[in-house]
Each structure stands twice: as structure tokens, then as C-alpha cells.
Simulated assay, not measured.
Amino acid sequence: MPNLKRRPTTLYLAGKVSQAIDEALRENRKARSTREEVLVLGAPGSGKTTLMRQLRIIYDPYTVREREDFKPRIRSSVLHALRQLDSLLPAETPSEILKILDSSPSETLISTEDIATLIHDWWSRPDVQNTSSHLSLAPSTTHFLDRILPIAAKDYLPSDTDILFCHMDPSPALVQLDIPFSEGRPFLHCTCVRQSLRSIHQWLPIFGEMSYIIFVFNLNDYEDAEDTRKTFDLWEYIYTSYFTRYAHIYLIINKPSSFAAKLSNTHPLNSIYPDSEVTPDITPAAAQEFLLRRFADRDCSGRRGISRWVVDLMDTEGVRVMMRNLMDELVQTRMVMVCGL
């Protein structure tokens, strides 16, 4: 005779599995209804990592343990800053500091404050300060050399600004962060991915269900026409891709202040784009609009106008205000899509 006792047990287990699947689907729908997926993209050096770190600082501050974990990277960043300065001032770098540059990051500034004092005294010399003021130093270089003594101290704990300037090579392939907002609003699940135009066809389909894309453009990249062209190509591919056809795309323009200084002092726009109708005395505002029109010119999708924010991503308060405004627009866009308002 067949074992009739097994049949109810099998049906019972199948029912439990079905209930578990239904519950998982309900939770997934609930999660998707209370969060918005945001993909952060941009060319290398555009400010994507800075934006993600700012979001951590504003919405989920770094713990003491996490700041401790940054210490070796920040001390390595000091070495990176020294090497950049030495490449521009090779004849003026003392032999003692040249020996430091030949050492590994783990052997520099970690066990002795005497080395930090030596570097600080050299960096503080009026002749070095005067010469370096005329060089195209990265802001991170001057920041770390200015703070070399506190960074070398035994009780040092990285500040938010130290973390923002920290040099990481290579950068993480993927960084994700949840950003909570006020009650009744969906939170943002932000994903920042290292990407290149060469591999975009491989990684973009993975994020095909993203609701929103934030594209970061560093205005200072304008002086390198090839890098800027790659940025525009990346933008065009993303904006016209089948996988982003339902995504709302927002443009963040980074480094407006330093762009204005560089434009007027060292790299006129017409020298970079000689074929364009750009005059040598173009104002920073007009030059910025000229570059941004190139993003609009790459839009062949027929979408509506590009939403954009201009902010220095090193300015924490500026990023805070920008994100508040961005969230307001995301909520309005969500209402239009859901309610047809």
C-alpha cells in the first residue's frame, strides 16, 4: 500500500515554501517602494569618490574604528603629496627628504615625528612657499603638507577633510550607501561603480533597473581635450543606452571656483577648443555654459532638459544643500510617475 502519510507532509512543506517566497516578494516590493536606486557615474577624477565620502560624512558619519583604518592611507597620501611636490621642485628638495621618498608608505611618518618636523620645516620655508604658490599643485598636496605635524602625532585621528582628500589607489570597484531622509520620503540606495568607456557594455546592464543616475563632471578637466572627449562619450553612451531608458539622469558640475581661476590665469578655453567660437576673454559663466551645451548636444534621446547642480564637492555644506534639493526633485519626479501629476 502507498504511504499516505507522506502526501500531507509534502503538501505542507510545499505550502510553507510558497508562503516564504510570497513573503520575500512582499518584502522586496515594500523595500522597492520605500527606496530609490541611484547610480553615481563619471570619468576618473571627476569627484565620484568625494561625493560618496561626503554622503557618508553627512548621513552616516565615520566611526572611530573606520577613521583609524584610514590612517595608513592618509599617511601614504602624505608621501604621494611629497612626490608630487618633488616632481615640480626637484632641485630644491633636501637630501633627507629624498631618502624618505625612496621609502615605503609604511615606513614614513608612522613611527617618528622627527621626519614630520623635518618636512614641516622645509615646507614652511618662505622660498618654498613662494615657489609652490606658482605651481599647479593639487589641493590635496597642500592640505596634507600643511597638516603633516598633526597627522604624524601618536594620538592622530583623521578628520572629515583628511578623509575627503585621502588618496586611494586603486579605488574600490564598488561603493554602496543608504541615505535616509525625513519620514515619509523614500531613502536613497546609492551605488558608485568604477567604470570605463571600454567596459561599459559589460557593467551597465547589471544596473539596468536603476531609477536615477547622477553623473559627475569636473569642470577642471576642460584643459585636457582628450579626457573631456571621453567624458562626453561616456555621457552619450549612458544617456542613450537601452538599459537607462527609464532612468532620470542628473548632472553634477564639480569645481566651479577653481575652474574660474584656471580659466583666467593659465588655460584660456579657446586654446583648448580652437575650432569653437570661443573668444579669449570669455567669462567663467559663459565658458561653463559652453561646456554644458556639449552635454546637451550629445542628447539624441529626445528626453526633457538636463537637471543639474553646480557645487564644489569638497564643500560639505554645499553638498548637503544640493542633496536636499536633489531629494525634493526626486520626490516630485516619483509623484509624476506614480500619480501622473
Rank of each mutant, 00 (worst) to 15 (best):
Y222N: 03
K230I: 04
R194C: 10
D169T: 12
L188P: 00
I214Q: 01
D227V: 10
T240M: 07
H248K: 13
E226G: 02
R229L: 14
D227M: 11
F217K: 02
F165V: 00
L188Y: 04
T240V: 00
E183F: 09
P180A: 11
S241V: 05
P205Q: 11
T191P: 04
S171K: 10
I238N: 01
D160H: 10
D178N: 14
C166T: 03
I163N: 02
T244G: 02
G184W: 07
Q176W: 00
E183H: 11
R185N: 12
T161D: 13
I238M: 08
E209Q: 14
L219R: 01
I179N: 03
R245W: 00
Q202T: 13
D160S: 11
D155N: 15
I200M: 13
L219C: 06
V175K: 07
P180S: 13
S171C: 08
Y237E: 08
I214C: 03
F181E: 05
C166L: 02
N218E: 13
F232V: 09
R185E: 14
T161H: 12
W235C: 03
T231H: 03
F181S: 05
T228E: 05
A173K: 12
N220T: 13
V193W: 05
Y239S: 06
L204V: 06
F165P: 00
T228F: 14
Q202L: 13
S196R: 15
K154Q: 14
D227P: 00
Q202V: 07
Q202I: 08
Y222W: 09
V175Q: 12
D221E: 13
P170S: 12
